[in-house]
Amino acid sequence: MAAVASNSSAQLTQTPARRTGVRDMPWLNAKFVAGSIVILLTLLFGLLGPLFWNTDLAYTASSPLNLPPAWVEGGSPDHPLGTESNGRDMLAQLIVGIPASLKVGVVAASIGMAVGILLGSTAGYVGGWPDHIIRTITDSVITIPSLMVLIAIAAYVSMPDTTAMALILALFAWPGPTRLIRSQVLTLRERGYVRMALLSNVPTLEIMLVEMVPNMLPWLAASLTGGISGAILGETGLEALGLGPTRVPSLGMIINYALNSTALVRGMVWWWLPPIIALVVIFTGFFLMTIGLDEIANPRLRGYSNVK
């Protein structure tokens, strides 16, 4: 990163008026900051929620059935966001469900990213037959309609908790990062500092992981946030189809139970709408982070049209 930053600064010396602007502090990118705040607040809701609310109410048979929110006639202050047909409190479900969904996204995307770094760096830096093999496999896997395969796998694999779900999603989370990292490595390996390291007999693995990977951090971060969104979307899709864990609530599971219990036609808005709003907020947060990181990594997107 230091190399990229200093490189960029050198090229921008022709426009001194911009030196003190916000755009010269890329990590303060407004979209990235806004997205980070949204995700942070979402995380805090899940992390601090249990301090203020009894999360045991998120489980089946813990509350009265079908209560509307407290502000609607028939509602109860004991269940401010209402309850659903299995006797679960909606507020407690959101407090438990939001971090559970985030966890699946983070675990799946992190595994995908780790595999992507390993394969992408190898393919891009080593080249030759390892590159051919990795590229062929990656290009093949990326064309597979992952949701269909995930549905088939999920139907046969027992998923008692969200970890199993995350591992299944990780099966298809690595080709994207692999491609991205390979293309970045192909350009980075021609840079002077990499050639210098090579001339200094620095081991290949060290060049890849110590010299090159740190210089790809913004791209990796953008890819990771995008990957988290993708994994959460995949998880929600599988769970909404009824293929996820059943006990610990997640956002997709809440939607699945709402669908199975015809919450839509029963007019139980308080059941199906909150998880959708939570997902919209999470996706918006990660989306802002991703485009913010994209701009951080790519000065052209910040308006530096004269950057070569």
Partner: peptide, 30 residues
Amino acid sequence: MKALRSSINHVPITLAIVIATAVAACGGQP
């Protein structure tokens, strides 16, 4: 990255459609 952004771009839109469809299908009262 463009592709990544493009796919993420669709997420809120898809969900908005889901919400709109759901609201349309909703019977209104419990």
